[in-house]
Design a binder for these strands. Sequence first.
DNA 1: CTGAAAGCGCTTACAG
DNA 2: CTGAAAGCGCTTACAG
Lengths: 333, 333
Amino acid sequence: MTIGDVARAAGVSRSTVSYALSGKRSISDETRQRIQEAITRLGFTPHAGAQALATAQTKVIGLMLRFHDDEFAPAMLQYVLPLSDTAREMGYDVLMVTDADGAEALRRITKSGKVDGLILLDVAHNDPRLEPLRAAGKPGVLVGLPQDTDGLDILDLDFAAAARMLVDHLQGLGHREIILVTPPLEVFKRGISYSWRFRDAAIERARELGLVLHAHYGESRQPAVGETLNAVLDEHTSATAMIVHNDGSVAALPMVLHERGVRVPEDLSVTSLYSQEFGRTFSLPYTAVETSPRELGRLAVRQLVDRIRDGDGPGPHRVRFLPPTLTDRGSTT
Amino acid sequence: MTIGDVARAAGVSRSTVSYALSGKRSISDETRQRIQEAITRLGFTPHAGAQALATAQTKVIGLMLRFHDDEFAPAMLQYVLPLSDTAREMGYDVLMVTDADGAEALRRITKSGKVDGLILLDVAHNDPRLEPLRAAGKPGVLVGLPQDTDGLDILDLDFAAAARMLVDHLQGLGHREIILVTPPLEVFKRGISYSWRFRDAAIERARELGLVLHAHYGESRQPAVGETLNAVLDEHTSATAMIVHNDGSVAALPMVLHERGVRVPEDLSVTSLYSQEFGRTFSLPYTAVETSPRELGRLAVRQLVDRIRDGDGPGPHRVRFLPPTLTDRGSTT
DNA sequence: CTGAAAGCGCTTACAG
DNA sequence: CTGAAAGCGCTTACAG
């Protein structure tokens, strides 16, 4: 079933069928009818490989992600689904790449022309995928902030603003001593910059406001998560508020507080940073900055598709930080 | 950068380069050396579209999945990652398809020749994707059991055996009255057969053994999950054991039991069905049948790749149930 | 408004 | 052991 079969059935040339399909030149109504009829009758679909060869476009975007032991897996899915759905809306399929060697995988799918562009998730400070991405000559959008942003489109939550927002919120309620649970040390070491962007901004803001802030590394896997939370709570009994910037820790927190007999917000005000969906999945009742994974995913795909369509035209590359918004769930007082 | 450039650089014909790449005919050592050297020096990678056109093979498999509101999203990821990793090991990339209209999406990627084969996740009793799959003439492996298994390769956990195993386990410990929390009603309605395969086998076994078994639908989203669990526990105060066959419910259970002051296993023996990884993510301490998502994913990809390679040759299609195994975490007595 | 033909970059019989 | 050439199924200047 090729375009030639359709052409024969409709009594036209193959080029006419092709143009009817693409709309790139005008076709008489009658011819278009005959072609359309033949296409539906024969159930014709163009061969993707042939199209890719002829046009140098695949209509596929690559989605590069990794799962690390120091990450809390369920959080990743929140980004993947909106990305996939948005891509489809815009006429693109998604090639999901989870290779351990991301740089090599990027080279592979890019040089073989398997994708028109790439979305990199969980980008690190010195991400090894950036060199091959720059060399690839294909557009890429990053979620996560690297050190060198030159020539790249980047999208991320404004974690510094989020941290300040939470500190301000607690300060406004009269809290003077706050516990901050950060991502695990390994996440810092891997160079995931949101970990220190959030922490450093929180520390800075607390200092400005004259607050005491105790920063501690969280953990991502049980039983270390619970043990660490308990140890931190034991150490700072005079703290009246908590900011949890770590998926694994916040998911485990309700149980830990329950076991300690700590009531929220009567005994402790708790704030965090997670999406509405994440909160619902884990039954989290905390006032938190919304991470908007759905919006981030949509924006990333839109940006990428714009780049793909416009060649290198749609203006300068840019780093874009989504402004945080606070969802008050009544866990602070 | 095409195969012609390599050929010129190595002083051979394009066909010789092609054969050197594929190994489909013998090449003199010296020629092979020169070609290899040229390939690495020029950084050549064959164009995937051209290969697909010439060979009618894409080296891509389609992964078809959906996320339903009545499902607990984190569970899905456990299958996706092993599938992706295994595919890569076997030389395949993964096109992830999450379209709402799975049947249409299957037709699209299959007719356009974007994939060599398909893996269908979360297959329903009368799954609309099966008709286009059968018509596609491409191999497909299903995870989940449909009504009509004719001509299909199917892989699933043996949920009936799992249910019997748990009932037997509890009966062996002397329990006479058991609560069963099943998947939500909507999952039954959607035709996801594991829901009734497990429930019916549990009921049947309980009857055989003369046990009382109360089956109730679980929920997947808060706050309904907790409310339902509490209602069920309120209703059957004399029950001494529980079987939870529902991700959302079991994830919420520790908190619910904690709030009720129910100790496990002293006051209540609890069993469930989940993977080790899922249990670790949600800090679940229950004796459970292991769902082996990693193994299932690996087997599915292996089976699919075998089919792709052997055309229609590798023997009859088959339904394969993985035997359940019990992981005792000490939550029963 | 439409067609004939070249070209995209591979693979693989066919010949030697 | 190697090469010249046809063919995979499209798209798109070029011509009319």
